[in-house]
Design a protein around this nucleic acid. Structure first.
Lengths: 124, 124
DNA sequence: CCGTATCATGAAGGTGCCGTCTTGCGCCTT
DNA sequence: AAGGCGCAAGACGGCACCTTCATGATACGG
């Protein structure tokens, strides 16, 4: 997601969008949610998500690490072992994420219905 | 933002991402926030946001209308007048949006600090 | 010795969002 | 008759994200 320049009158929206650039990444919410349950290894994450490629997983994890959301611990055994876990900051991020999930679950039907109404209306 | 296929074990994350495809649009949060203060005309929104193009504004508004977040009322005067306002669904969306904004304002410094630490660490 | 397991990186291509520019429409003012 | 105003939509290009495919490093088991 692309960064923004802050908006004058409503700069807090710029702040909101900054976090959206974090959790807006395709797999970010899922990864954070999984790491909330318990810390996991790279390969565990990959296996449980299933549809993700190594490349993409590496990429999300890097981003989240960069932003201080998760911690990356390398154990230099062979083969290497890499463990990921949420930081304190990451756990605090679960608050808005859960708000998001709640709204989504409660209102998903309403959104779908609205889209159908819109289809009908614009078909005319 | 691109849609997803639901993930088996954590389908609620798919739901969360659906809403992210809504408010993840570059100007969506700002537009919804402005319409929360009061209903506004197209040209008002454009003027107050400032940096947005007509094309982009039209585009966000269409999307939000499609998803049932905002309502669009055309008054066929000349020149035409178009008023936008939040629906009930849209107002409910403010709950997660505000959670997002709050987190962003509280933790923006921590994120910036983490990024700097990351820079230093990877430079080595 | 060679394959394998674990994690990471790089190039290349598709796709969708967003911005710029242009066009259109409908009636008013000048 | 010409141009402006308020809103929308089209073609077009850039850019970021995501995916696919290929490669690499390392040391253990067979």
């Amino acid at each position: 997601m692309k960064p923004d320049s802050p908006n004058g009158a409503h700069s807090y929206c710029g702040a909101a969008r900054e976090i959206l650039t974090i959790i807006g990444a395709k797999w970010a919410v899922l990864v954070v949610s999984l790491l909330d349950e318990k810390p996991r290894r790279f390969s565990e994450l990959k296996r449980e998500i299933g549809d993700i490629t190594q490349k993409s997983l590496t990429s999300v994890l890097r981003e989240l690490e960069k932003d201080g959301i998760i911690e990356r611990v390398v154990t230099p055994t062979v083969p290497p072992r890499v463990d990921y876990s949420l930081t304190e900051l990451g756990r605090s991020l679960l608050v808005p994420i859960k708000a998001l999930r709640l709204w989504a679950m409660e209102n998903h039907p309403a959104v779908v219905a609205a889209r159908e109404r819109f289809e009908v209306k614009t078909a005319a």
